[in-house]
Design a protein around this nucleic acid. Sequence first.
RNA 1: GCCCGGGUGGCGGAAUCGGUAUACGCGCUCGACUUAAGAUCGAGUUCCGUAAGGAAUGUGAGUUCGAGUCUCACCCCGGGCACCA
Length: 773
Amino acid sequence: MAAYDHKKVEQKWQKRWEDSQAFRVSDSPKKKLYVLDMFPYPSGSGLHVGHVEGYTATDIYSRYKRMQGFDVLHPMGWDAFGLPAENYAVKTGVPPAKTTNDAINTFRAQIKRLGLSYDWSREIGTHTPEYYKWTQWLFVKFFNEGLVYKKKALVNWDPVDQTVLANEQVLPDGTAERSGAKVVQKELEQWFFKITDFADALVDDLDEVDWPESTKINQRNWIGRSEGAEIEFDISNSKEKIKVFTTRPDTIFGATYMVLAPEHALVEGFAERSENKSEILSYVEAARNKTDLERQEGQKDKTGVEIQGVKAINPASKEEIPIYIADYVLGHYGTGAIMAVPAHDERDHEFAEKFNILIKEIELKDPKEMTKKVGGTWVKNYRLRDWLISRQRYWGAPIPIVYDREGKAHAIPEEQLPWMLPTDVEFKPTGTSPLGQSKELLERTEKIFGKGWKPEIDTLDTFMCSSWYFFRFADPHNEREFASKEAMQKWLPVDLYVGGAEHTVLHLMYARFFTKALKKFGIITFNEPFLKLRHQGTILAEDGTKMSKSKGNVINPDEVVERYGADSLRLYEMFMGPFEAMKPWNTQNILGVRRFLERVWTIFENEQGFMQDSPSVEKSQETALHQTIKKVGEDIENLKLNTVVSELMKFISHNGLQRANVEDTRRVREIFLALLFPLAPHIASELAEIYNYKIAHWPAYDNSRLTSATVPVAVQVNGKLRATIELAADVGEGEALQAARTDANVAKWLALGKEVRAVYVPGKVINFVIGQS
RNA sequence: GCCCGGGUGGCGGAAUCGGUAUACGCGCUCGACUUAAGAUCGAGUUCCGUAAGGAAUGUGAGUUCGAGUCUCACCCCGGGCACCA
């Protein structure tokens, strides 16, 4: 037979899988399993080795589960709307649709070259009208259910490029990443999702999913639930009250001043009555012009101004206390006002020192009792804010809203969906949303709804497209629903979800929010979309730094596939280290797995080379076989894929089973190929075909053959290893100790002192403790 | 600053209900094959020591017959959050 030619073998099997639609899953699953990758943004630079890591892991898991008889839904699609394609269009004039479709074609071809077992009949792209019709439908559904609202919000405004910027596009010094202009805050009407309605469920239901603990903690921190009291403070000579939120009502006796956020509703009225009106108003104006980032910078040096002539009354001590306005208090959290306790709170302390305010030492009381005493109520608060979904961008799903002549917003009715993204738009920053240029969009609106009606010209945050795609995979071609209830019932929730750790907060939070909302609407019946979640670790460049185009240290998976083959790349990426760990690339190490596959190839070729038939059956080798089957299965189950590769290497290594005398060589070879198949499917399929092995089913192991008749036991004297002896697995303590004592080396050490005690751990270790003599 | 995760050979990493540390691979050394190189195959490879033996899992203590694994303190690296009252 010819030498191992990875190109020939891999092309052959990829074509065969494609032609036979081998991974197309049944529509009526008997044992369902839904294994999902976070679908990629099809960037122009193509597939990255990081993608390969995650996709290979889910592929191994899917193939393994299919061999166990599961109907595995394992789909792939494209998170195709987004900024890079639009920025590229601004630079070159090439329409984002063209760039995106080209990139998708590249990605698909690259993925197929890896031999990944996706059901391509379910492929979706979020930028297609067939898909975004349902993104828009869901927006309308949420709108009708009262989970969408519009309000004025402060956004980052770039006065040079005349555009709104995302927070990530503003540099820490408050200038725009692109234009270098000083970014200002501008109030614009924006659409929001009421994600805060689900804050409690988003925290509580984390208890029921199998996710990395750190990811759960990130989510909890982001939601930032805290419990405390809302307490009203009276104002001297006024009926007005200031309501504060505090987690420490027990410190109220130490509240020697109050602070209002500059945005607080009472500020204006207080300024009118104050003795320093202009000072107050200019402080508020200055705060308003600061970006969030600039306000955070003030952390080390707090600013503020007292409202002179207006005092509050501490409800516990009944003392009159001053009121300040300071931007270290945030308008959007709690009540936008605090009782400041400088003796107890670091930030208040810093402020009080700077402004010479009384710092009063206090005795602590019981928090809930104190709350009751001062007429407060016990409440929960969240740092989570509603989700702003308007984007002043072109390459996204148009928000399906039109405005009547009075400017009132109306949802576009279902029969008009998809509300098409217009194409008569130039990709130049003009100061308003690009859709505002489209004559077609305006004419369409007037034609359908009437003269004077205007379309919404913002698009939806692309995170919305990815918040529901896992439902669509259950029923990707449905033209009447985003997915039928039956299909979702059949396939969801996702059993295993794998993707990068960079999405621990936003995407996962939004997808969970959608799930909870749809459950509330009565469309689905489960709480959580992703039962088990794992993150692949970042793959670093050979020099241990992050891969980056500018450093020229990016590894292109295509080149690796070309040179070593997809099976080698798959095996190598799994062998690198623990799945979730960050690990450096090392081209030398690929040679190791490539050599392993070549050895496998040769061993199958040469009947003499591998586990020759032998009349005598060594029990312990048979045991090793069963142990290997068990360990490989368990490790795949737990995505401990690096040790799976180790096990397989050991299996054929010259120190391992290759020299074994196992009763049936063919039987062992068949088992080995079946174990190899999920990891390196091309070569395993080829060898199975050539030599006529059946590897469709995952091999079973025999519990009774997992332990062998004799086991090595370590013998220690005072904790130091002095011998290793072979004992019957079921030997009694007395006999075991006796055997150990007769070992020459052990005896030598035992002679050095008086034996105090002996510890016997069956199958593991014997430890003699001897006293000094 | 706070919250997570992690420090094991020359390198990537195994091993955590406490029980033979360094599996598997890379690299390296020696040998076989070869005119030679490469590939392949075989032997070896934590450190010190000719050996007997000793030491070692970031550092220092502790618990234990026995600690990479448990406890305490500290150092370093990586990630996330960062005025949330």
